[in-house]
């Protein structure tokens, strides 16, 4: 898939597996938004499950790294995330500080361990 568009089959999959299942919830919010209680128990479960799915994807990228991320040793990847999280907590939840610290530790770790 070196060309800009790639194959049309992939775009059809994007529509079916990405765009439609995602956009449907915005459309439903637009059409039926009036009658839903924002604090309802169902939405608490939905939010928790959505958060956990995203957490699973984060774990997936770290445990089974895609592409060249696999060239970074396991310990360095986990250490980088742990250090970034420590920086995030220490800076009263600065996302930027956490990301920069995590990246710095990964680069330093890879440089030391090779």
């Amino acid at each position: 898939m070196s060309s800009f568009i790639g194959d049309w089959h992939a775009l059809l999959i994007l529509l079916l597996a990405g765009i439609l299942p995602n956009e449907i919830w915005r459309v439903l919010g637009l059409v039926f938004g009036g009658g839903i209680d924002e604090g309802s128990e169902l939405l608490v479960w939905v939010r928790a499950t959505a958060t956990a799915i995203l957490a699973g994807v984060i774990a997936q990228i770290l445990v089974f790294p895609p592409g060249v991320l696999a060239s970074i040793p396991d310990l360095v990847r986990y250490g980088a995330v742990a250090a970034g999280f420590a920086a995030f907590v220490a800076t009263r939840q600065s996302i930027l500080a956490g990301v920069l610290c995590g990246e710095a530790v990964m680069l330093a770790g890879k440089w030391w361990l090779g």
Binding site: A17, G18, R26, R47, T49, I53
Partner: peptide, 30 residues
């Protein structure tokens, strides 16, 4: 979507995972 399809998941699996992650958009829009 990218990691499910990229690691060999089917269209149906990707669509279900995407739609579950997207439910949170509903209360946001609301």
């Amino acid at each position: 979507l990218i990691s499910t399809l990229g690691t060999g998941g089917t269209v149906v699996q990707a669509a279900i995972a995407v739609t579950l992650s997207a439910i949170r958009l509903f209360p946001m829009v609301v």
